[in-house]
Every structure is written in structure tokens, then in C-alpha cells.
Write a protein that binds this DNA or RNA. Structure first.
Length: 435
RNA sequence: GGAGGGGUGGCAGAGUGGACGAAUGCGGUGGACUUGAAAUCCAUUGGUCCGCGAUGAGCGGGCUCGCGGGUUCGAAUCCCGCCCCCUCCGCCA
């Protein structure tokens, strides 16, 4: 949620920054001018209603006094006046209520203003590759992970489809073992770095979905359980950030740095095709997420620190990767600035997004009503989060880049976690796994 | 799922239709006393929206006693629905 008071005095700046998300300024201008108009109306009606209520309060109190002093005649006259006042008040209140609803709805559906360093643009082509690490392997054979994994019993795609439908998969044998090792490795790294580990519910209510900005924006992208009015989390960001919804923190509580492993559930409505084969786009994947809450002056330095941390993980995994600055149109609804970390997957000859690191500034804190107290004053802290890291695609890259006829070679950092230096192919799974 | 009890300010805890934004205690802040501290005394102490004011201090008004609706001139208080917590029963990893 943007700050309405800031919008009142910074209309042009807001339009300028918001325009980075669109093809031209007109869309941003419409959004901003609509909320400013509604805000005018709202404040005007509020004043009228407040005045009527003040009068009602005064007269009601007087009526009580008259009754007590036994002045029945004057009391009757006052009662008639108050009954009329009540009618007009109800009409005004209704009008105010309607405008307030529009006002809230309009404000809640405006995306965050991109930071000034965010390039304008509406699609991938406007993204900027900031930095690339590692050299791209050039193996004699390039195989996509779904072929390798299927043939050698790491992943069973048909089973996934059978159990839940397309876009689901079942890990088997060494595939399942690799995933478990990666989760453990990422959590250990984070805890060693000083993060506090959090393991939250995978189902959340609508207030929680609203707090981080998934609702109402991403309504159709989340799985919804109607009977209990609960959403399956699309990322740990949602429950972990919302731990602080409706909270007042002390300044010494900051910075808060949390890490959380959860599965992520995403409907991915409308996505299909060659680019979504195998593990590239699935309805459920595992992810270790880091969530930070920091002082507003610190948030952009913190964003860089998070990127450095994620880069460190990828380096330990010996994967070629690059950092991409997203353009305005590619930003998520709540984000002011986002870097993606992409890993090169040689079998597909493609860069796969394995981490998305964002600064939401005060956008989420405002939605959640999260504040920090300093003496008599309050401010909204900045929230950030990033994947560290997302597993399905990372496994895809590990499998493709480290494929040998004997098995999948593992980076040394994973050896203790897997108990192997290689995911060997010569130990076959039982025949029934081919069902 | 069933039965019962409960949800009031930072905390504890009164309040069952009007003088209640809310007694009292604790805590916090400022001050007096003191070399300093403790004790004591005095004052002050929630959030939010709107207006005036300089985006400050301050002043005025509205809303806020789990949440939403209703009754009433007037609701913390009465009625209805929902949520959460506790106890017992049932079910269950």
C-alpha cells in the first residue's frame, strides 16, 4: 500500500515512478488521480459525518440530563430533534461508507512505486544483466534434466501427473535424497550466518494474504480452500513476514533476519508450453526463503547484502549464475526493486531463475500495519525477502550441468549432506519404480 | 464435532443503558526530595481518522472495550452472527 499522505503531496513523482511499470504514463496517471479524487470525497464526507456525530453526542448527553432533572417537556422536544438527526446521519454514513470502500479498494490495488534505479519497461527485454559469475560448460552431450532424471530414476513425472495432474512430480531415490540435502545445506548456511529459523503454517487466512500483497492482486494464483477460507502459501514470505502484522516493534529489535523452509504452492494458471517442461514450472516446489525487516535507511544496502549472500550459496554449489535487475513491468505487485539470480542449465542452454530478491520498502509494512516506535513517534520499517534458494529449478541445473555417464557429480559442499560424491547410476531402483 | 468458561488500555483487573476512553494497582515518562540510588510525593501516560496550525508544538472533533451487524436519542454494558483462547468429552498423527 502506498502512503496516501505522501501521494497527496507527491502526485507527479508517484506517476513518474509508477510509469516505469507501464508502456506510458497514462495508466499510472489514471491510478493516482483516481485515488486522489476518492480521497478528496472521503475527507469531505468524513467532516460532515463527524460534525453530525458531534452534535448527536452533545444533544444525547443533554437529553439524559433533562430526563434526570425531570424536565419531561423539553426532553420530548429534544428527542424529536434527535430522531430526525439520526435519519440524516444514517444517510451520510452510508455515503461515507461507500466512498471509503472505493477508496480502500483503489489504494490497495495500486502496485508499489519502483525505485528510481529500476529501468522502465514492460517485459524481459528491458531487464539488465548486472553481473555474471562462472564460465558456461560445453559438454559433449546436452541433455535436459527431465530426460536424465527420468532415465536414471531421480524424478517420476508420470507419477506426479497420476496423483495430482500435470505440473506435479515425484522425487525418487537419489533425487529425493538430493532435495533433502539441499534443504538441509541451505538452512545450515543461513543459521550459521545468524538467521533465526522459522517453520510456519502452509495455510494462511485472507488478512495474511493481503498483508504481503498477494491479495487481492494474485487471488487466482493461490490455491484456495473454500470450506475453511484458507490459502496455500505461494512462498514462505507470506506467513513469515506476516508474523509481524499489527505489531509495534522497538527500534533495537531491528534488523530482523529470518530463514524459513516451506513448500510453495502455485496454481500457475495460464502457463504452459516447452519452457515449462520438467521442473521449470511446477505447482509445488520446495524453497528456503530469507526475510528481513530493517530500518528504512538501511534497506537498499540490505538488498545488496542479500544478493551477496545468495551469490555465495551459488558459488559454493559451483553453478554458473548471473544477477539480473528487473525492469518496472517485471516487478511483483509489492516490490520497489528486485534482482533475480539465474543459474545456467546447460542441458536446455537456458538461464533459470532460482532466486528473486526484493525490497518492498514500507509497502508491506503499511498493509500489515507494522510499525517501529521511537519515543513518541512511529515509522514503518522496510521489508525484504529473497530465495536462498528455490529447489526445483536448482536441481534441474545441478542435474544438467553435472551429468556424466556414471552419474551426477556433486559439488564438494554437498558431499557430507548426500553421503556421496556422485549420484550413482549403477545402483538401479527396483523395477516397480518404473510403473 | 459436543458441553462449559473467557476475550476491557503496556500488564493485572473493575465496570451490566447516560457524568466511561474507561476505577484501582503495576509498569513507562517528566519533576520534587537526595552527593547518588532506593523509598516517598506530584504530574503525566493507548491507537487511529478528519480539521486548524508549518509535514513542529498545540488545540478541536469523530471512531476505537476480540470482529461484524442490530436495538436505542444514547451501548464496554442489551440482542444476533463470527473469530480466538482455556477446561472437559469425542475423534485422531
Amino acid at each position: 500500500m502506498l502512503d496516501i499522505r505522501w501521494l497527496r503531496t507527491h502526485r507527479d513523482e508517484a506517476i513518474d515512478r509508477l510509469s516505469r511499470r507501464f508502456t506510458d504514463t497514462s495508466q499510472a496517471q489514471e491510478l493516482i488521480d483516481r485515488i486522489l479524487t476518492l480521497d478528496e470525497q472521503r475527507r469531505h464526507l468524513q467532516q460532515e459525518v463527524d460534525a453530525l456525530r458531534a452534535r448527536q453526542n452533545t444533544l444525547s448527553r443533554r437529553l439524559g440530563e433533562l430526563r434526570r432533572s425531570g424536565n419531561a417537556q423539553q426532553a420530548e422536544a429534544l428527542l424529536t430533534e434527535l430522531q430526525q438527526l439520526k435519519t440524516t446521519l444514517r444517510e451520510k454514513e452510508k455515503a461515507l461508507e461507500a466512498v471509503q470502500a472505493d477508496w480502500h479498494n483503489a489504494l490497495a490495488t495500486i502496485p508499489n512505486c519502483p525505485h528510481e534505479s529500476v529501468p522502465p519497461g514492460t517485459d524481459e527485454s528491458a531487464n539488465q544483466v548486472i553481473e555474471t559469475w562462472g564460465s558456461l560448460p560445453e559438454p559433449p552431450v546436452r541433455l535436459p534434466h527431465w530426460e536424465i532424471a527420468q532415465k536414471h530414476g531421480l524424478i517420476h513425472f508420470r507419477w506426479g501427473a497420476k496423483l495430482a495432474g500435470s505440473g506435479f512430480y515425484v522425487l525418487t531415490g537419489w533425487g529425493a535424497r538430493l532435495q533433502r540435502a539441499l534443504i538441509q545445506f541451505f538452512l545450515d548456511e543461513a543459521v550459521r550466518t545468524g538467521y533465526v529459523e522459522v517453520s510456519p503454517p502452509h495455510l494462511v487466512n485472507a488478512d495474511t494474504g493481503f498483508g504481503t500483497g498477494q491479495l487481492p492482486d494474485k487471488d487466482r494464483q493461490m490455491y484456495y480452500i473454500e470450506e475453511d477460507e484458507l490459502y496455500l502459501i505461494p512462498t514462505a514470505e507470506v506467513p513469515v513476514t506476516n508474523l509481524f502484522r499489527e505489531c509495534i516493534l522497538q527500534e533495537e529489535d531491528l534488523p530482523i533476519r529470518m530463514v524459513s523452509y516451506t513448500p510453495c504452492y502455485r496454481r500457475e494458471a495460464g502457463s504452459w508450453g516447452q519452457l515449462t517442461r520438467g521442473l521449470n514450472r511446477v505447482h509445488q516446489f520446495d524453497k528456503v526463503e530469507i526475510v528481513h525487516i530493517v530500518h528504512p535507511d538501511e534497506s537498499y544496502a540490505e538488498l545488496e547484502r542479500m544478493c551477496t549472500y545468495v551469490h555465495g550459496l551459488l558459488e559454493k554449489l559451483e553453478l554458473p549464475h548471473r544477477r539480473v535487475l528487473l525492469c518496472g513491468g517485471e516487478l511483483g505487485f509489492a516490490s520497489a526493486k528486485t534482482y533475480d539470480m539465474e543459474v545456467y542449465a546447460v542441458g536446455q542452454d537456458r538461464w533459470l531463475e532460482v532466486s528473486s530478491i526484493s525490497n518492498f520498502e514500507a509497502f508491506q509494512a503499511r498493509r500489515m500495519n507494522l510499525r517501529v516506535r521511537t519515543g513518541k513517534h512511529y515509522y514503518h520499517p522496510h521489508t525484504l525477502n529473497g530465495s536462498a534458494l528455490a529447489l526445483a529449478r536448482l536441481m534441474a541445473a545441478l542435474i544438467e550441468n553435472n551429468y556424466t555417464p556414471e552419474g551426477i557429480r556433486l559439488p564438494s559442499v554437498l558431499h557430507p549432506y548426500v553421503g556421496q560424491e556422485i549420484l550413482p547410476f549403477e545402483i538401479p531402483l527396483p523395477a516397480w519404480t518404473q510403473n
